[in-house]
Design a protein around this nucleic acid. Structure first.
Length: 302
DNA sequence: TATATTGTTACACC
DNA sequence: TGGTGTAACAATAT
């Protein structure tokens, strides 16, 4: 489930391969994952017209630059359009150069050994030089959305996003104010709220709170200044370290033997229910919070 | 069969 | 009214 570090890794390691390439053909195997200007529910997907527009405006265009906003990848095209890609939980992007070299980012299933395209390959970009970009998604939650470049900022999935953790304006003072604005909200669901801060999902919310020694259920307004500072530092340190390791759940590889995202072995609480806390030896617990599972150590998080 | 997962939306509550 | 919480939904492998 790609979060900020995984999406950033994909942007840096995978999308750099397609920059400057010209799209020859777009193969839409599952048209409902392709949006053209509107959003789900307003008839912009699934209609023959949306699919036609999606294809028409991509084919012949060159890929310009690659950006990221929260967990969304943004590809600026040489024409007036911009492509948004959200991998949600199980999306993958796979690039295959014409010499067969591959790069893959996103959910680790299906594993590297499975040939592409396969039954989970829903959209294929064929480039003029013979290389290809595959969009795979097991659960079909992800999407690709083509919008007018000058309307990018107005898109609802971009417009409401909270501040990026690495934005220079995101200071501990601002973070403290933000928490006070939502004094009664439980800290973990708040951290995961994309309209509060961009890019933090379940893994990094759990890890950041463990780093700071704060229980996921604590009301945001009851967190003491020194804890706010630790949490602020924890978010940045953990995200940065994960980016440096190539993300947690994304397996990005160059060869078929491949390597997993390197952050997995640094996880302190996520997915470690019943195991010993690596800091104090307590037993990691898992509870349901806001419809998601929260992992924490009851002994050293208070 | 129940579960896991994200982001959005709908709706209840105070 | 708006902050908060809960549930449903999309889909499918385990």
């Amino acid at each position: 489930m790609p979060e900020l570090p995984e999406v950033e890794t994909i942007k840096r390691q995978l999308l750099k391969e397609v920059i400057g390439k010209k799209i020859k053909e777009v193969e839409l195997r599952l048209p409902k994952l392709a949006y053209f200007e509107g959003f789900k529910g307003d008839g912009s997907t699934g209609s023959p017209q949306a699919a036609k527009n999606f294809k028409k405006n991509l084919e012949g265009a060159k890929i310009g630059k690659a950006d990221r906003a929260a967990k969304i990848l943004i590809l600026t095209l040489s024409n007036d359009y911009t492509l948004l890609v959200h991998l949600k939980m199980t999306g993958q992007l796979i690039y295959r150069a014409k010499n067969g070299k591959m790069r893959r980012g996103g959910h680790p299933w299906p594993p590297a050994a499975v040939e592409v395209p396969n039954k989970w390959t829903h959209i294929i970009f064929h480039f003029v030089d013979g290389s290809k970009l595959y969009f795979n998604d097991l659960r079909q939650f992800g999407y690709m959305k083509l919008v007018k470049s000058d309307e990018l900022a107005e898109q609802k999935e971009i417009r409401k996003l909270g501040i990026e953790p690495f934005d220079k304006n995101f200071t501990v003072e601002l973070f403290s104010k933000m928490l006070k604005c939502h004094a009664k909200a439980k800290i973990k669901p708040l951290l995961m709220d994309q309209n509060f801060i961009s890019g933090i999902g379940n893994i990094y919310a759990d890890e950041s709170l463990h780093y700071a020694g704060i229980l996921p259920t604590r009301p945001a307004g009851k967190i003491k200044p020194e804890e706010v500072k630790r949490l602020y530092q924890g978010i940045k340190i953990i995200l940065k370290k994960s980016i440096a390791k190539g993300g947690t759940s994304s397996d990005t590889y160059v060869t078929l033997s491949g390597q997993k995202g390197g952050y997995e072995k640094y996880l302190k609480v996520y997915g470690r229910e019943g195991k010993k806390c690596l800091r104090c030896g307590g037993i990691i617990k898992r509870i349901k919070l806001g419809g998601r599972s929260a992992h924490f150590c009851p002994d050293c998080q208070g």
